[in-house]
Structures are given as C-alpha cells and as structure tokens.
Amino acid sequence: MPSSWKISGLAPKRAVQAALLEQDEREDWDGEIVLVGREIAENRPQEWVLEAFLPRSPTDDDEDAIRSLFEGGAPAFVTEELADEDWLTMSQNGAQPITAGRFYVHTPDHPARGDASLIDLVIPASQAFGTGQHETTAGCLEMLTAMRASGVRVRAIADIGTGTGLLAFGARTLWPSATITASDIDAVCLDVIEHNALLNDVPLGSGRGKLTMLVADGMDHPLLEMRGPYDLLIANILAGPLVELARDFADHVPPGGNVVLAGLLETQERAVRQAYRRAGFRLAKRLVNGDWSILWLRKRR
C-alpha cells in the first residue's frame, strides 16, 4: 500500500474554520489533499488543529497551498509519514459508540446496547466517511428520527455521497418498505457498503426494502434518474456541492418531497438555504450540532 502523510498545525478555532471554508471555495483544490479540523481536547474548545492527509509525500506546492488558506499567516506545520495503513481507518479506530435519535451506532469492537427502543447499527472503521462520530452524521440521524416521528411517509430514498452507507441504512429502518438508492463519487464505497450491508442485515437489490449502490457524481447517473423521483433525498457532503446541486435535487424530488442536507457549517447555512429557496424548497426544520447545521427542506407544492 502506498505511504500516507499528514501535515498538521495548531491554530484558533476561527482560523481553522476559516481555512476550511476557504478550501471549500477553491474549485482548483487538489482532491488528494483531505483536510480535517477539530478541537484538540474537549476542555479546550477554542484550540483546534488542522490536519491535511495525503496519499503521497507532500511537495512544497502542497504545503504552500495549505498555508495559503490562512489569512494573516499560517501556523507552524509538522509533517509526518503515517504507518502503512489507511489514514481514515486509523482515525476512526477506537471510535466510541454514539446515540443519535433512535439510533445506536457502534463499531464491531463494541457490543450492541440491548435496548429495544434503539435501532442498532454496526459501522466498522473503513476507507469511507460516516461512522456516526461526526456531528453532521449524528445530526442527520436525529433529523431522520424527527421526520419519521412527525409522520413523513417515504416510498423512494436516495442517499447522495453515502460513504459507509450509514444514513441509507438508518433511513431504511425508519421506512422499511421504501426503495433505497445510495451513491458516492468514490468507487471504494462499493465494497465498503456491501460489507456493511451484510453486517446490518440490509438486503442489496432493486426491490422495496432493498438497497441499490452505484458510483455517481451528484445526480449524474441513468439509474438515479430511473429510480426517482425521491420522496426523501439525503446529502451529507459539503456546502459548495450542495449549492451546485440544488437545481438537480429539485428535478428529482416531487412537490411535497423532502431533502436532508448536512456537511455545512452554520456560517455556510445562509448560502445553502438561499440556493434551495430559489430551487423551490422551504425550510421545515433545522438542527445545529456543534458548529454544523442540518437542514430538512420540503419542496413547495
């Protein structure tokens, strides 16, 4: 396996968040450089670290690109080569179970809760995003729970940018007779979801209650077109792509249909909501989990 590298630097929370926003706005950003921002300790919420992960030895241009994200001067960075295993898997190993809405999500290292009121989902650390630890994923599970409790009926579900498949699995348990289509731009998710579906007794296929997985950039796939329209479309990605996909999502959601959007910082919410308002959606409910907004929108009739 090729070596992986990490570049990390300490900075105030606002500076790291601003850097992440700046990276999101850059259309020419190198997709091999994956950025993560987080607080360094629970009792030090204003002190953050920016980590950049690369599947290769970083060049001077790579380091300059990361530094340029910081207005007024970048922090000192430390560069290190990681051990010969996938960096995302390593970052998720040892992840603690979470409870979000009606869901209890844990890795195979932890036992099921044994609580009949909770839906148990097993998601191993993997090369795909979405073990439930991130505030956006947990927030989506809470939102889906609230939607089901409010009486939302769903016959067709699409999870765009599905990662591990967690949100698709969760939606299936809440609306078990719906058809479910899960897509991601990264082909590595195909094997990940097949494995996770087996762990969670999720049948693969095209019928009701079954999950169809495909690789697609946004809504650009003939099968996504054929299996729609979608009463529920979930997209936990990034603010920039969410804005770009607003019209496409509107074309695949019927009047009265629902979208759940996440992956946007609270500071990015206004731009996302404006894009979807122009595309014909209205806000039904919003949650804020940490610094992240989770939006439930309904298409106007």
Rank of each mutant, 00 (worst) to 15 (best):
N93A: 12
E63M: 08
A76G: 07
Q23H: 01
G73E: 14
A65V: 02
D30H: 11
P111V: 06
W87V: 05
E85F: 02
M90I: 12
K13S: 12
L82P: 07
V34H: 01
E63R: 10
P58I: 02
F77T: 08
R26F: 03
A100V: 14
V49C: 04
D120W: 04
A76C: 03
G72H: 11
S91T: 09
R26H: 06
Y104R: 15
A83M: 00
I33Y: 03
Y104T: 11
G37F: 06
A83L: 02
S117P: 02
R44K: 09
I40K: 13
N93S: 11
R113D: 10
L35A: 09
L118K: 15
P55W: 02
W29Q: 00
L35Y: 06
R113C: 07
G31C: 00
E32I: 04
D115E: 06
D84A: 08
D86Y: 01
G73S: 15
V78Q: 10
G101A: 14
G73P: 15
Y104E: 13
A100M: 14
E80Q: 13
P111Q: 03
R113N: 07
L20S: 11
W48M: 01
P55A: 02
R44G: 02
W29S: 00
Q46D: 15
Y104G: 12
T89H: 03
A65R: 05
G73R: 13
G94L: 06
L82F: 05
W87D: 05
A18D: 14
V36T: 12
W48N: 01
L20W: 08
P97A: 11
P12R: 05
P55C: 03
I40C: 13
Q17G: 10
R26M: 08
R56T: 05
P12Q: 09
E71P: 00
P111H: 03
E39M: 11
A41K: 14
G101H: 15
S57A: 14
E63H: 05
E51D: 13
E71V: 06
S57I: 04
D120G: 04
D120T: 06
A41G: 13
R102N: 10
V36F: 06
L20I: 14
V36Q: 13
L69T: 06
G31Y: 00
Q46K: 11
D64S: 13
T79A: 12
A95V: 08
Q92I: 06
D61T: 09
F53N: 01
R56Y: 08
Y104V: 12
L69M: 09
L21S: 09
I33N: 03
G73Q: 14
D28I: 01
L21R: 07
E71G: 04
I98P: 09
E80P: 03
A112Y: 05
S68K: 01
A100C: 15
D24V: 00
D86I: 01
D62Y: 07
D30S: 11
A100I: 15
N93V: 12
V36E: 13
S68M: 00
A76Q: 10
I98E: 09
V36D: 08
R67G: 08
F70S: 03
P111I: 08
A19F: 00
E63T: 08
A112N: 11
P45R: 02
E85Y: 00
D30L: 10
F77C: 07
R38V: 03
D86A: 01
Q96K: 10
F103G: 09
D120N: 07
F103Y: 13
D64L: 12
G31S: 00
R67L: 06
